[in-house]
Design a binder for these strands. Structure first.
Lengths: 358, 358
DNA sequence: TATGCTGTCTGAAACCATTTAAGGACGCTC
DNA sequence: GAGCGTCCTTAAATGGTTTCAGACAGCATA
């Protein structure tokens, strides 16, 4: 492949001049500039990103570290980041950690020698990322945390307002007349789980609801966890009339367990998820959920990383995106409740419109 | 960060010896080797992948080009490839093309200057990739096509036996007594669509079924396509008693349209998808589908790429993976049919067992 | 004892493709 | 003819890999 030397020969200028033309690092008179550009176009020359990176101590690479692309929430985040990266001439390196901190560290170490400009991380857990991040920062790389934050995180970040979203979901159920509301939350070593629980609890407190201890369950963010915990909840007395799930996958597991126990959602028990995945529209019944945009999360993170690359001294930014409660058919007022037939009706309408609006 | 020169000083050996120890490119006596390794561990030294790549004309990068990570079939493929890459010390660069050939070419061009060892491509369409691939091959990079093949592809590839899978699905419906079977296929400029259609047609021919022209519909591989085409099909006379979808997303759209038209699946109309996504278990009704392992597809492709990097002269390989027909509740014998109550019963059993086995 | 062979290592240099600091050529102005 | 910009060239530097000549020890052979 053509290199700069060949371009220089073709254009009859020196190596340095070619570089200056390409990078705009010095004034070059038009005729010369044109000769260089002509040579570039004629040969289809593209500068070697390796040599460039070696010399500049930084490549046009963004590294993205996520738990698992198979979790349907993350493709959106990745896609958002990749779009922003691509449109700015950056490439995205993708790494899966399976929420395993040692694998995370392994990736972090190995990636460093590629000198990425930025690092977008969905942390595996609360473990201290500060040491690793500091290595990157010292090397001039931007580090942005997304979706959840590690302990003592003092860098750029993008998350959604989990507490607020959870609060609205719980409040909606309370408005329908529910008082026996169980929570199946995600791992409590993740800040998003913690924040969601905070939101649920705030709503309960405001409504003076005191739940039995067993009504709070913790599990992993997957369907089997939701399934197992729901089986437990359905055996409790009094049986919960509603379940708030830490994410949609947990909610899917809940729906499955409810179905298996010959109960009916929403007539016997209401369910609300979190994330608002596309699939919530096609489950039976369609799942109500606190929607958050993974795409926006990823795109904002990539933009933040690029901004920081451009100006490493700008003040640190914490972006908090809004959530939106999407009511579908998985919620109804509790049975045997005297109150709240009006909110019940309202909910059906909301469900129908949200569904058809999709 | 530490560089090789520092390691050489620390170990009291020459630069070249460090390189030889690290790469095993020459015999080095144990005591010396140990001194070098000690220095490496003490400093946490890692060789610069950029300098290394620059000199060796090749980096430990695998580039992966896919249509869109948001399509739920692809995360499995990506994950399979990333796992193999990671465990062999390679990193994965992910690129989305949106099935847009020009974007594909843009990615291909831009990536070249990173000198990836291999390229794993799910081609955007039939467009000739030969030119681009040839560039890469000449640069010593492996190119593997996955899932579908471009026109005249003469390199390594990994696909599933689409024709066979489609044949089985069609045959199953025929066995249940269906004779009015519609097909909503994916884009016919993709080889997987072509092959699936071949399989459907082979089964029809064997059963001497001649479908009206309108029973063959072509659309994009997404839900809205399946939805729109199903609306058309449901207006036809005679109305099809079954739909074979080109993939699961199309089938999801079909289920939605059927539901909206106040018809019932499977009583009024049966549906079989293709891909066997996880979500097929949670739709209403659970969707029967021709399962293929995206993970295996991706893993095999990455392994093929690494094998080719290791030996560029080994014979070209075309891996064809098996599919598996998973029967769930979206299929039943057609109404008003005298035949086939026995296969009908059999299908219910198969459905139940397949469902609980998940 | 001299000779050659082998295995292990050193040191130097070339090379990869770029960036960038430093300096030189040239014309213009005063 | 000194001073000053402007435009361009030169050459060092980045961090590795790889080649090559040579040193040196140990050993077998004559």
């Amino acid at each position: 492949m053509a290199n700069m030397k060949k371009i220089a020969e073709l254009a009859g200028v020196s190596l340095g001049t070619v570089s200056h033309v390409l990078n705009g690092t010095a004034r070059v008179r038009e005729p010369l500039r044109k000769r260089v550009m002509d040579a570039v176009h004629a040969t289809g020359y593209q500068p070697s990103q390796l040599a460039r990176g070696l010399r500049r101590d930084k490549t046009n690479i963004l590294a993205m570290i996520i738990p698992d692309i198979l979790n349907p929430f993350f493709p959106g985040v990745v896609r958002g980041a990749e779009d922003i990266a691509f449109s700015n001439g950056y490439r995205l390196v993708l790494c899966n950690t399976d929420n395993d901190h040692s694998k995370e560290v392994a990736h972090l170490n190995a990636l460093r020698t590629y000198l990425p400009s930025g690092l977008i991380v969905i942390p595996s857990d609360l473990s201290d990322l500060t040491t690793q991040a500091e290595h990157y920062r010292r090397a001039g790389a931007a580090v942005v945390c997304v979706d959840r934050l590690p302990r003592n995180w003092d860098g750029d970040s993008v998350i959604v307002d989990n507490t607020e979203g959870a609060f609205h979901a719980a409040n909606y159920l309370i408005g329908l007349g529910h008082r026996q509301i169980a929570v199946i939350n995600g791992p409590m070593n993740l800040t998003n789980s913690q924040d969601r629980l905070k939101g649920f609890r705030r709503a309960f407190k405001a409504a003076k609801i005191e739940s039995p201890h067993g009504y709070f369950q913790e599990t992993t963010f997957d369907r089997s966890g939701g399934y197992a915990k729901t089986k437990i909840l359905l055996k409790m007395l009094p049986r919960p009339t509603a379940i708030l799930a830490g994410n949609d996958l947990i909610a899917f597991g809940a729906l499955l367990a409810i179905h298996e126990e010959k109960l009916h959602c929403p007539d016997d028990i209401s369910v609300i998820g979190f994330d608002g995945l596309d699939l919530t529209e096609t489950t039976s019944p369609p799942l109500s959920s606190v929607y958050q945009s993974g795409y926006q999360l990823g795109a904002a993170a990539a933009q933040l990383a690029l901004d920081r690359v451009a100006d490493s001294n700008s003040p640190i930014r914490h972006i908090v995106l809004k959530t939106e409660l999407k009511i579908r058919e998985s919620v109804a007022p509790p049975k045997n409740t005297n109150g709240a037939t009006v909110p019940a009706k309202k909910s059906r309408v909301a469900a129908a419109s949200a569904f058809s609006a999709q």
